[in-house]
Amino acid sequence: MIRALQIEPVKCTGCLQCEMACSYEKEGVFNPAKSRIKVFNFHEEGRMVPYTCTQCAEAWCLHACPVDAIRLDAETGAKIVVDVLCVGCKVCTIACPFGTINYNASAGVVVKCDLCDGDPECAKACPTEAITYVDADWTGLERMRDWADKTANEQPQA
């Protein structure tokens, strides 16, 4: 089964454990500046929102890359940067409408979420299940369930 990261901002507390876990897994350092997932704090709304690559099916980054350095991982559906092929031209960072692929100046290549070979560290580190790794075809399941519950169980009974 192909899985996808599901992000539910309402559950996020802004602790940044996901950013720390990501940087440790991918770069071997505990450093939010090296994380591929970022948490945004919309202070005036009282909302914290984690954001990362959604692994588009027809990925802009993949199609834009002039040296075919971004490949599809067929097992996970992740679009993966092959570091040895990447020339650091950054065209993909311009092509991506979501900003989730970025240039890493110290490494000279672009970096993005690769779903950690199907075991994403951010989801494991999240203490509130604001980030989960679920069936990619059913990312709406929990919300459907909530609304089903509302529809059936919160209506005045006849």
């Binding site: 507390t13 802004g14 602790c15 940044l16 454990q17 914290m48 203490p127």
Partner: peptide, 9 residues
């Protein structure tokens, strides 16, 4: 909402 400080679970 509730909010965490850095690293707080």
């Amino acid at each position: 909402t509730n909010q965490a400080c850095f690293g707080c679970t």
